[in-house]
Simulated assay, not measured.
Amino acid sequence: MGTVVVTDEQIREAVPMADAVAAVRQAFADLAAGAFEIPVRAALGGGAFLSMPVHHRPSGTAAVKTLSLNFDRTPAITGTVVWSDVSRTGGLAADAGALTALRTGAASGVATDLLADPGASRLALIGAGGQAADQVRAVHAVRPLSRLTVTARTPARAEALVASLRAELPGVESATAPDPAAAVAGADVVCCATNTAEPLFAAADLPERVHVNAIGSYRPGMRELPDDLLAAATVVVDDEEAVLEESGEILHALGSGAIDRGDLVELGTALDGGLPERAPRTVFKSVGVAVQDWALARLLAERFLP
């Protein structure tokens, strides 16, 4: 048996967001239990090229994602995820762009389900690039939305995203905002999906109770969140080793003394009951972990491999 190639359209048809959230939730639980062999990803060319391998010991399966990133092109992410099973002679390959957007959204869904208030329904989205739509879909999967507000550096892109999502979100009030401060006012959940080098808003711009997902920055020179937000919030990260290597927000806040390493809780640990008393504001900081790619690649393998 050779390698089965799965297209973007097949990925979307085969893996609804609710299934993606469930698979990624289990993967983070397995990560906390020590089921994965997972090195920190290799970043080459200043982060323009990434390679992310992972091995799931109990199942004898592995996934490797290789991709390139260029935010001046569309799509910004191109590459391949390859899934292998030690017991099979063939494997599966999937487009990295579609799978990355889906699994990144799913992680925000897991964190939002864990950390956001049960009645949260108003989402502010900052950014309108390739990751943005799946952030909305994931939050909506765990906290049905009543309102969506989108802002982006290019207003036309925010307007186009809102228009494209309206058919998926019947009954949800949707609009654009002129800037991040206006977008987050009154939000229950905020999703940041940008490649900015400076914080998108001040902590004072946020409501007193809010959950924030920050998934856009993935290198030390990028930073979406201000130190004073992290200092006062419950901070959950996808993987401590990864964020200490790659997250500009976390590294800056540690360097300024706003937080210390003891303030960071890994998502898998939090899912297993290891979350301290919740502050009124919560933050999920993700730089992306290969177990997310493995989780969705495994779903695809179950659907497409004999």
Rank of each mutant, 00 (worst) to 15 (best):
V4H: 00
V150G: 08
V291M: 12
L296G: 07
G109W: 05
V212E: 08
V21G: 09
A23T: 02
T3V: 14
T269L: 05
G45R: 01
R153S: 06
L148F: 13
V190D: 07
S108K: 06
N213S: 14
P280I: 15
L123P: 01
A20P: 08
S146G: 15
D134I: 02
A43G: 06
I11S: 12
A202N: 06
F201I: 09
L102F: 02
A175H: 08
P207E: 13
S51A: 15
D239G: 15
A214T: 11
I11V: 15
A158K: 14
E208D: 14
P306V: 15
A253E: 05
R153Q: 11
R298S: 13
L251A: 03
D113A: 15
R137N: 06
T151G: 12
G274M: 10
D205P: 00
A116V: 02
R153F: 03
L305Y: 12
T112Y: 10
A42V: 08
T61V: 08
A120M: 02
R298M: 06
K285V: 08
M52S: 11
M52D: 09
G186K: 00
L50H: 00
A94R: 10
D30I: 01
N195T: 15
A203K: 03
R143A: 11
A93I: 05
Q131C: 10
Q292I: 06
V236K: 10
P118A: 13
A242L: 07
R261Y: 04
S121T: 08
A94G: 04
F304L: 06
A141K: 00
L50I: 00
K65N: 09
E249I: 14
N70I: 01
A214H: 08
A20L: 10
I259M: 11
P280K: 15
R88H: 13
G127W: 03
L145N: 01
L102Y: 05
A185V: 11
I259F: 02
N213A: 07
L230C: 08
Y218S: 07
T194M: 07
A42Q: 11
W294R: 09
A295M: 10
E9G: 03
G46S: 09
N195M: 11
L299V: 12
A124M: 04
A22G: 11
R223A: 09
R25S: 13
H252S: 11
P16Q: 14
